[in-house]
Nucleic acid binder design. Structure first.
Length: 261
DNA sequence: TATATTTGACCTAT
DNA sequence: ATAGGTCAAATATA
């Protein structure tokens, strides 16, 4: 594990440096119209790598802290009082829970919890050694279509803009809001080279020990058309370098659960 | 009124 | 014993 962590630190560092290079390159090449959104996106990429490094470092130092829960994820603490009287004893009516295995799960690092699907929140928990609560969602169409898709969202420790999102199970519903490439459908590893999609893709990690995948999400509304800014072969090379860095993590069989202590 | 959210209680795995 | 995942009553909102 120690060796894996070292490899991960090196890989993330290289990825972050590559993103920085790309950012500098874009600043030279783009006009003012395209600069803002693309620049923001590259900053996010760089920030993602930085977050990963921070998480690793915080694991090493063992630093723990408790800070107030963010209002964004936890509007729970609004002072509203609920259940003035204790709930009746319902022991015996519940049971059958199974702690979920991490297999068949997918992890997404994104700056938004939106993914095009309709989710219904069913729980929230304070997590040990974590500044932010973990929120639990299930598909809104569970009742109608029996859709078993689940989602957990937790904000990153050291960066209030990024979310660690874990998906469990596949969407079996036909949600009208569902994106064309739902998160439940892992892309083939061939798509790793499809750089036209990459500007819009937050980092996705699968736990089923298959090839890494990338996910199309709604960051598309934040960035200008990738094709307009990617004619340069040097840009292609930089993107490939960033993606190869990501791929190396999984070639070495490092799962995200290993990173998040 | 229907649907969604909040949150304490309950349950299982470790 | 504890942490994390889920349930479900109470409450909020459209």
């Amino acid at each position: 594990m120690e060796l894996n962590k070292k490899q991960l630190v090196e890989t993330l560092s290289r990825g972050r440096n590559s993103a920085k290079k790309l950012q500098n390159l874009l600043r030279q090449k783009l006009n003012d119209d395209g600069l803002v959104s693309v620049d923001d996106l590259v900053s996010e990429i760089s920030q993602s790598f930085y977050c990963g490094l921070l998480v690793l470092n915080s694991c090493d130092s063992g630093e723990l802290s408790r800070v107030p829960v963010s209002a964004h994820l936890s509007s729970a603490c609004t002072g509203n009082t609920r259940r003035k009287t204790p709930a009746p004893n319902v022991k015996g009516r519940r049971g059958g829970y199974k702690r979920r295995k991490t297999m068949d799960s997918r992890t997404v690092v994104s700056d938004t919890i939106e993914d095009g699907y309709a989710w219904r929140k069913y729980g929230q928990k304070e997590i040990m050694n974590s500044n932010f609560p973990r929120c639990y969602f299930r598909c809104t169409h569970k009742q109608v279509h029996g859709c078993k898709a689940l989602k957990q969202v937790q904000r990153f420790e050291d960066d209030s803009h990024m979310f660690h999102i874990m998906y469990f199970g596949q969407h079996t519903c036909q949600s009208p809001n569902a994106p064309s490439s739902p998160e439940g459908h892992d892309l083939d590893s061939k798509n790793f080279n499809h750089h036209n999609n990459l500007l819009n893709c937050p980092l996705t990690i699968t736990n089923n020990h298959t090839a890494p995948c990338l996910k199309q999400e709604e960051l598309s509304n934040k960035v200008s058309s990738p094709t307009s800014a990617q004619s340069s072969s040097s840009l292609d090379l930089l993107w490939k370098e960033i993606l190869l860095n990501e791929y190396e993590c999984f070639k070495n069989d490092i799962s995200f659960d290993d990173i998040i202590c």
